[in-house]
Amino acid sequence: MRLLTHNMLSSNIKGVANGFPLGLEVQKFVEKQVDFNPDFLKNMFPKIEWKALVTAAKTMGYAELPEEVESSMLESEDFLQKFHHALLELHLEEGALICPETGRRFAVTKGIPNMLLHEDEV
């Protein structure tokens, strides 16, 4: 699971008002090289919750992202490379996503998060 996906997932438990961002519990992560496409990054930038990405990247041991961002940074190749690395190249393989409101764990196994809810959660 890429951090792009982490940035797009939220806790969907009934009654949870603020299910984003999910906490990250990392048991195993891998880095995989992904082809760089600056246009994609520029497209996605406005859609990304930046603080959530910074925190998630740090949890995965990557602390190079700036805390504060503005769109002018997209002109910088150096910034785009860091953004690319954090968003697409850090993969959570084993661990969990944690609902920020209830603490409920959503397991991540073989890189696949399981967002299925129990009957009493829907």
């Binding site: 699971m1 996906t5 940035n7 797009m8 997932l9 939220s10 806790s11 969907n12 299910g19 984003f20 919750e49 959503f106 696949i112 998060p113 399981n114 967002m115 299925l116 809810l117």
Partner: peptide, 12 residues
């Protein structure tokens, strides 16, 4: 993602 339709993704 293992999900019922796209329930975890729908919001974002």
């Amino acid at each position: 993602i293992c999900d019922n339709l796209a329930s975890g993704l729908e919001r974002r």
